[in-house]
């Protein structure tokens, strides 16, 4: 199952709707990087609202995707992380330090626009 990546002006929009398995996560990493390359997008919003469980491998892949996107010149905002997921990430020691976060998709897009303007 592939995760759909939507283009919105100069941003990419990803909404993760179901629990990721390792294969899907790696596939997603590849797809997203290709898409950034293809569309030369300047920003990416990844929405996690429907995810309420995350394991260490997925968390690592996510961290990687974020730094890779950054290398390709796209700013990443992650949105809608559930409390339980946040606690798991912190307990796993994954702090996602330089990542922008927002409460929901709307605020995430606002934040990204503002970042891109500066």
């Amino acid at each position: 199952m592939r995760i759909p990546i939507l283009k919105l002006h100069d941003c990419l929009l990803v909404s993760i709707q179901w629990e990721l398995d390792d294969q899907t996560a790696l596939q997603f990493q590849e797809d997203l990087l290709h898409k950034i390359h293809e569309t030369s997008a300047r920003g990416v919003v990844i929405d996690f609202t429907s995810i309420d469980f995350i394991d260490s491998f997925i968390a690592k892949v996510l961290g990687d995707v974020i730094s890779m996107s950054k290398l390709m010149g796209a700013k990443v905002v992650i949105t809608g992380i559930q409390p339980a997921v946040a606690i798991t990430l912190i307990e796993l020691g994954i702090r996602l330090e330089d990542v922008l976060t927002a409460l929901d998709l709307e605020k995430g897009l606002e934040k990204l626009q503002r970042e891109l303007e500066d």
Binding site: I78, V85, I87, G108
Partner: peptide
């Protein structure tokens, strides 16, 4: 510090 980090992750 952990709590502050987690708050940052949920977007605040």
């Amino acid at each position: 510090i952990q709590a502050a980090d987690a708050v940052r992750l949920v977007g605040a």
